[in-house]
């Protein structure tokens, strides 16, 4: 990755896309119950690229799952725009996930009975069942843009990991979500594929998409506008990388690494 590709932060970012208040999560299947999130207060600005970092087991992924409603928080609130997600029924939460959220996972979760393009089309068709032509045109354009149009009719076992993750990005964007969640999107990839995927994500962010990404890889986190650090379920620190962005990209990387060293990362 070259730092020159790091995104620019627009100075006009003021609206909040996502807010969590005193978010807590405990698992009661263990004795005593395991407390994974200890009251997280976090705000993600509209159009921001936020990276969540922390050691293994610090609660990064749980935070992501709780915010997106895939896991129910034990206490606290999550607001997406005007919606209090924690108040929603399971059905409404699902609908919100469909229409307002996009996901990229560490492992490319695809349905093996569908080809790549069908997998990408699926959520978009569900969200807009009446606008099939429009959905298909949008998806085909994305396939071109992310360089996977030539493998669109391939099965998911026939393409590379990088291609699969780019397809994940396509699928996540196909419903034009308000926020894109990424959970270690490059965790299972080699370095060249990581670059491919991060370039794609950076491009998406440049187009104005709000991204919240969980990662333990500084080389990925450095692409973000802001990095927050999680330890034992608590948000302990954050670093805004925006200031260094245009002036000196290598400073930006140094800054992040030294900040992480301060947290014994």
């Amino acid at each position: 990755m070259t730092l020159s590709e790091a995104p620019s932060t627009s100075p006009a970012l003021v609206t909040t896309a996502l807010v969590t208040t005193a978010l807590e999560k405990s698992y009661h299947s263990t004795e005593p119950p395991t407390r994974v999130l200890n009251g997280i207060d976090l705000a993600v600005r509209q159009g921001e690229f936020l990276a969540v970092m922390g050691a293994s087991g610090s609660g990064k992924s749980t935070l992501l799952y709780c915010i997106s409603g895939m896991d129910r928080p034990t206490a606290g609130h999550v607001r997406l725009g005007d919606l209090d997600l924690t108040e929603l029924s399971e059905r409404d939460m699902s609908h919100t996930r469909l229409t307002k959220m996009g996901f990229i996972f560490q492992q490319a979760y695809f349905l093996s009975n569908f080809n790549l393009r069908d997998n990408i089309l699926l959520p978009a068709l569900k969200a807009q069942p009446k606008a099939r032509a429009e959905v298909e045109a949008r998806v085909d354009a994305m396939l071109e843009r992310f360089g996977i149009a030539h493998v669109a009719d391939h099965g998911i076992t026939q393409v590379s990991g990088g291609q699969l993750q780019r397809a994940s990005i396509c699928r996540a964007l196909a419903t034009k979500p308000a926020v894109l969640f990424a959970d270690e999107p490059t965790g299972a990839l080699n370095s060249s594929m990581t670059l491919e995927v991060m370039d794609a994500l950076t491009g998406v962010h440049r187009d104005g998409t709000t991204i919240m990404m969980v990662t333990h890889d500084p080389a990925c986190a450095v692409r973000a506008d802001r990095v927050v650090y999680l330890r034992d379920g608590l948000l302990v620190d954050e670093r805004d990388l925006g200031a260094w962005q245009q002036a000196d990209t290598s400073r930006r990387e140094d800054e992040l690494l030294s900040w992480l060293r301060d947290h014994d990362f």
């Binding site: 939460m93 699902s94 919100t96 229409t99 349905l111 959520p123 569900k126």
Partner: peptide
Amino acid sequence: KRRSGILSALGFSGSE
């Protein structure tokens, strides 16, 4: 389970 998880993450509700 995996299939259910994927569809649920994509926005299919439990009743669906």
